[in-house]
Design a protein around this nucleic acid. Structure first.
Lengths: 93, 93
DNA sequence: TGAACATATGAACAGTTGAACATATGAGAA
DNA sequence: TTCTCATATGTTCAACTGTTCATATGTTCA
């Protein structure tokens, strides 16, 4: 059980950065490639790529290759649930 | 909306530390004072108090005074929901 | 094969964070 | 008031994190 505490903290650590949250929100609208994400967030490609790697390692996103491009999408519904409940907490007084 | 992204990241930042998660799990069992928490986590009082302050600022816990002791408890059901969904994600393959 | 494009990776640097220590505040008892 | 007990606060420091820059990998097309 104590292991799980660390895993859980690590999971939330992934949600604790605004860049990653913005990426996740973008992906709520469907899969996108790295250039699209970089453009929409006005961030350089390297920064986005690094963050996508973090998201991937936590199984929050999955990837498929299409030619030269890599398309990222949310890997399961937990992401949406977590964002939603978090937002509910924020919006309450 | 962009403000909310930062607020959301800040909220999850609070969940991103194993000490704070352990405190929250303890409080799932009902309100506890600072000494109880320090003892159960085998941590010094100052460290626990600092983390409780962080939890309080995010409205994740609330406090009441009883004599010399301060009793902390979870402030709403979002905490339990967030921990639960996070744990579901962890336990899945 | 080589050029061009898309993405990933490694290193370095600034900014942030949790724990520990020392000390301060506040409440109850004498 | 003074002495304890319970908790909070301020400071310091080592460890960690996100971004940037430079470069590498991998894919398509000619």
């Amino acid at each position: 059980m104590d292991d799980k505490i660390y895993d859980l903290a690590d999971l939330f650590k992934v949600f604790s950065d605004s860049t990653r949250i913005r990426i996740l929100y973008l992906l709520l609208g469907g899969e996108k490639n790295v250039s699209d994400i970089s453009d929409e967030l006005s961030m350089n490609q390297s920064a986005v790529s690094h963050q996508l790697k973090t998201l991937k390692q936590s199984d929050l996103v999955k990837v498929r290759r299409d030619g030269k491009a890599m398309f990222y999408s949310l890997s399961d519904s937990h992401v949406e649930s977590i964002l939603k409940i978090g937002m509910e907490h924020i919006l309450e007084e």
